[in-house]
Every structure is written in structure tokens, then in C-alpha cells.
Amino acid sequence: MSTSLEDRLALRELVENWAVWRDAADWERFATVWHPTEGWMSATWFQGPAAEFIDVSRAGFDSGVSILHFLGGHSAEINGDRAIAQTKMTINQRASIDGVEVDVVCTGRFYDFCGRYDGQWKVVRRQPIYEKDRLDPVDPSARLELDPGLLDRFPTGYRHLGYLQTKAGFTVKTGLPGLTGEAVRRLYDEGAKWLAGSATPGNPSEE
């Protein structure tokens, strides 16, 4: 097996382990997918070091927050000990909005800045790309009226997810990367620079 194929399989396994271990609340193994000192997670409701993301995810899971991840197609660009991995995904969150239980499904890609650390691939930075989403009452007969002002606060790619999370008490960041636009173009540029040897994986705190 060529080294390139081994690397591609290892990167795919890394992404799959992230989703399985996070959703299963296997926090000890979940911590192993991240770079031990530089890991950074960006999401609608959280932007910060991986260790803090693990802590708040654990607290949310224990308090009943229901967020699941499903993965699809995967592609990786590799240059030595660095890689950019893109993986089709959906984020599925269930919660109540104004007393109505709903599911929000957001479709997009995980865009991962990866590095080889002590011979193993790790996630250095994860930035989801939010392409589109939808909201459905769990009970199809339930009636729910959304606040258009709150809904329009968020980009098309995660407007319903942002709405639900805001209603649930999260502070949701606006301006995150979508299918098109300046934010995703900047992300692609940061990815290209990472592969070329940049000192850091972009400026994740500014995303």
C-alpha cells in the first residue's frame, strides 16, 4: 500500500472517529483526534480551543442537548505532513422552539486543517461550511410560526440552525462560510496556505 493511500485512509478514519466518538460521548477517545496543543474548533455556537470544545460538548450532552453528525463523501489534499480534508456532512439537532419539538438538519462540509503529529494525523482546525438547512416539527400536525427578523439574522446556509440554537440560549456567530461568498473564499485561501507551509492554519478566531 502506498504511503499516499495509507494517509488518505488514515485521514478518513480520523474524520469518522470525530463524528462517532463525539456523538457517542466517548470524550477520552474524542480528545485523541485533535492536535494536543493547537486544536481549534469553529461552529455556529462555539469558537475556541479543542479542549474547551470537549468540555462544553460534554456539559451539553449531560444536560440533554441533542446534536448528531452524519458523514458522506470525502476528499483530501496532502502535502507532506499537512493535509486539507473535506467531508460532506449533515448536522441534526433536536430541540423545542416555543414549545414545539423540532428537528433541524443542516447540510454542508467539514473543512479540516490536519497535521501529522508523532506519526499520526490530527485535526489542527475544523471549520464547517454551511450549505443549506431546513426545520421540521417532529409532530407534522404541530403549528409553529417563526420570527422572520430572527431568521433573517443568519446566512442561508444555517438560518434555521441558528434560529433554533438562539432560541435554546446559544450565542450564534454570523458570517460563517457557506457554499459561496467571501468567507468561504477566505477559508479556501487559508487552506492553500496551510498546505504550502504557513505558520498557522489561517485566523480561526476571526472566522
Rank of each mutant, 00 (worst) to 15 (best):
W194M: 01
G175S: 08
Q86A: 04
Q165T: 02
K122D: 05
G119W: 05
L71N: 00
A76R: 01
M89D: 00
N203G: 02
S96V: 11
K88I: 03
P128F: 06
A25D: 08
D55G: 01
E190D: 12
G108W: 01
P204E: 03
P137F: 08
G169S: 08
P204W: 10
T166V: 11
T107L: 05
E182V: 12
P148V: 10
R159Y: 09
V20Q: 08
L151I: 13
E52M: 07
T166E: 15
A31E: 14
V138N: 12
G181C: 09
L150G: 10
A31K: 10
E101D: 15
K193I: 00
V123I: 15
S2C: 08
R82L: 12
D98L: 09
A51S: 14
Q127T: 12
D103F: 12
V20D: 07
E206W: 07
H160C: 08
P140H: 14
L187H: 01
E28Y: 11
L5T: 14
G202T: 03
P140G: 09
L144Y: 06
L135C: 02
K88A: 08
S96K: 15
R29I: 04
A142V: 06
A85D: 04
R109F: 11
E16T: 02
D23R: 04
D103W: 11
F30L: 10
G181S: 06
E6G: 05
Q165M: 15
D139P: 13
D62E: 15
R153A: 12
F30D: 05
V56D: 00
E16M: 00
Y111S: 04
E38F: 03
Q93D: 07
T37R: 13
V102F: 07
E101Q: 14
T180W: 07
W121S: 08
S75D: 14
H35Y: 10
H69K: 05
A24N: 02
D152G: 14
A43K: 06
N92D: 09
N203P: 00
A10V: 11
R153H: 10
G64K: 07
G157E: 10
E145W: 11
T166F: 07
S42Q: 05
D62F: 09
S57E: 05
P140T: 13
Q93W: 04
R153Y: 04
D7Q: 06
E77K: 10
R58K: 13
W21D: 09
T171E: 15
F170G: 06
L164R: 01
W121T: 05
D136A: 15
Q165G: 03
G202R: 08
H74I: 02
L161T: 06
M41R: 00
Q120L: 15
R8A: 13
P148D: 13
R134W: 11
W34Y: 11
R12I: 01
G149E: 14
G80P: 05
V100S: 10
L9E: 15
R159L: 08
E207Q: 03
P204S: 03
A24Y: 00
G48P: 08
W45K: 03
Y111I: 01
Y117P: 00
P140A: 12
F154N: 04
S42A: 04
R109P: 01
T3H: 03
Y130C: 03
L187V: 09
E145T: 14
P201C: 09
E206T: 15
V65S: 07
S2R: 10
Y158F: 13
L164N: 04
I129T: 04
S63L: 13
S141H: 14
E145L: 10
T180I: 11
